[in-house]
Design a protein around this nucleic acid. Sequence first.
DNA 1: TAATAAAACGAACGGTCGTGCTGTCAATTC
DNA 2: GAATTGACAGCACGACCGTTCGTTTTATTA
Lengths: 195, 195
Amino acid sequence: MGKGEQTRDSILDTALDQASLVGLEGLSIGDLAKKTGLSKSGLFAHFGSKEALQVEILRTAVWRFAKIVVAPAQRQAKGIDRLRALFENLLDWTEMGGIRGGCIFLAAAVELDDREGLAREFLVESQLNWLRTLTKAVLRTVREGDLGAGVNSQDFAHEIHGIYLAYHQAKRLLHDPGAKGRALRAFETLIANNR
Amino acid sequence: MGKGEQTRDSILDTALDQASLVGLEGLSIGDLAKKTGLSKSGLFAHFGSKEALQVEILRTAVWRFAKIVVAPAQRQAKGIDRLRALFENLLDWTEMGGIRGGCIFLAAAVELDDREGLAREFLVESQLNWLRTLTKAVLRTVREGDLGAGVNSQDFAHEIHGIYLAYHQAKRLLHDPGAKGRALRAFETLIANNR
DNA sequence: TAATAAAACGAACGGTCGTGCTGTCAATTC
DNA sequence: GAATTGACAGCACGACCGTTCGTTTTATTA
């Protein structure tokens, strides 16, 4: 790995963390340069535009998400175990990934939903991809017999996603200590109601 | 109502809409002045600081939410009808309220969750208040016999909230035309599973 | 209608924003 | 070890940021 690539990666590490705190738009190149010990123009040259930087931040996040949430779950037996692993990994993925400001995909979702451009397009594709992964895991769980044959896998995936969203907000905005317990409970109830 | 108050209200109408599009921080006073036909300093004098303006925007949103979502539901019979009215009003409240950028409480939640200050405090109080309203409606539904006695009203309220969050994201980020149908289905399934 | 108070304006403040351009220094390649 | 490429710094740009000030216009009250 050449020098440039190395610097670029360390910029993106810092940028991801920072963007989770202040948002993709709120993030400033000057501030990021200060935090990484580079000059503003030196940092800027790595990406060429702020939008490109934002896309790369999202790409970094996707990569980390895959490593922390998806990959370990694939090592579980297909069916309910794998689905549960996906969900439980999801709950802690930002902490595991060293991201202080919470799930950047949720932050970006509300920040970009009215904008247009490459960052939005990349985010939409990522989210669709995640929902597909979740849906597929549900479908396999049905096939394994751990969920009833009448379960609509897509609806089910969205319900799991909703539990995550509520959990995330309760934890990060309301500082609700019961958030995680409630999320786990909601997940198990959802499973139990659809056996 | 004096002239000042009148102007202030029309500023807040525009500001609420704009903040829903670009966020509470992304909103700029100069741009807002242009859109309302005022000078920057003239507008600024109404609030004294940007943070105060943000709080007033949230207050405006709360007021409108109460009028569109909560008040009509109170005219329904207590129990399942009222709970359902709350949920269904919730799904369309931003369109009904003439807010183009989606639910500002969700946008503000991810924007403010790492900040501190009056805006964050106001938002937390608002969200807790909404969850209490929802919880109370669930509790009454249990008492009316439309939900089983074993239902944990607080958990139940959070699950409804989660359905809303997933719906909102699917609609606004993914432009999923099936979002509303799925949300209504999820709600009814949740009710049916807890009778 | 005159006196008073409220509302809005215009200009300017110090800062920061994203983005160029030019030069220099260091790393890679021959 | 020289030549070439790439990484980064320094400086400047025009634009816009939130905020303050003193002044002028408009609305309210006596």
